[in-house]
């Protein structure tokens, strides 16, 4: 059994070149949209804007500016987190979403029927429809490359090693050292996101080093599995059904009692049966 593989993304050294986005689209042969004419966002230098079915990598530009000169840029190459406990895999009704031998999460496009349950289940908003294939798609962590011992396209293309690929256990050690280094240099806000196997979703196989709160990067503070609501929601529905059933039965009983009483009192007062 191969070791669990994944990404460690050090956002502090991302320069926003988007080489990873291009490499990802190229390797995975993801189609352009609108004939390759991209609409400009108009409020950001980032025009990709979000992960979706044809953008499996997205470099977020977080432009924290207070006036024209006072501010900073945060950049983060976002991707599927390959959660150890994956919400998408949990809800997929066709079995299209599988966990691979590398502990990554892959959507099998020939099995997916495009019901989109996984899109709503993902706590990170990673998955979306690919309108060419008619199926839900996302990063596969270049499963095809990994099977033959190659590195995923994005990390290979990253010029600053902001995206690092390898066995998760090794990446965690590397991330820990980098965190210590940043703290020693006075970056008090530095924190790892998703590295803890005892944390939310059993840890993320694509985890991050951030220098601000996760929400600033568009990441949920405490991602959760969609099934957390299942027992409660199911029980409340069943209880409501029981109450409504009872209401109906009481109504039937009441009708019978009234009609018997009516028949007893007036002889002909019962109306039509």
């Amino acid at each position: 059994m191969p070791a669990a593989m994944g990404f460690f993304t050090d956002t502090t050294i991302c320069i926003g070149c988007k080489a990873c986005e291009v490499a990802c689209k190229n390797w995975n042969q993801l189609p352009a949209e609108a004939g390759g004419i991209r609409e400009l966002s108009g409020d950001s230098y980032d025009n990709t804007r979000k992960l979706d079915g044809t953008h499996w990598r997205h470099v977020k530009f977080i432009e924290q500016f207070d006036g024209p000169y006072n501010g900073r840029w945060l950049m983060m190459s976002d991707v599927c987190k390959h959660c150890v406990q994956a919400g998408c895999l949990e809800v997929c009704p066709t079995g299209a979403i599988i966990r691979t031998e590398f502990d990554t999460v892959v959507i099998q496009s020939d099995v997916c029927n495009g019901c989109r349950a996984c899109i709503a289940a993902c706590p990170f908003g990673v998955i979306d429809m690919n309108h060419v294939s008619g199926t839900a798609q996302k990063c596969t962590l270049c499963y095809d490359s990994m099977q033959v011992g190659l590195e995923p396209a994005c990390s290979k293309a990253c010029p600053t090693d902001s995206i690092q690929f390898g066995p998760i256990s090794e990446l965690r050690v590397r991330a820990g050292k980098r965190l210590e280094q940043l703290k020693a240099q006075g970056e008090a806000r530095a924190q790892l996101y998703g590295d803890d196997p005892n944390g939310p979703l059993g840890g993320l196989n694509s985890f991050y080093l951030l220098v601000d709160n996760p929400e600033v990067y568009g990441l949920p503070k405490k991602p959760q599995l969609p099934s957390r609501n299942l027992p409660k929601s199911g029980m409340l529905s069943a209880a409501t059904g029981a109450v409504l059933g009872l209401v109906a039965l009481v109504g039937i009983r009441k009708r019978r009692v009234e009609e018997v009483a009516g028949a007893g009192a007036g002889g002909s007062g019962g109306g039509n049966a």
Partner: peptide, 13 residues
Amino acid sequence: MPDTYFTASPHWS
């Protein structure tokens, strides 16, 4: 900001 706001819509309509 609630965590559910960071997700994508399945466009069930």
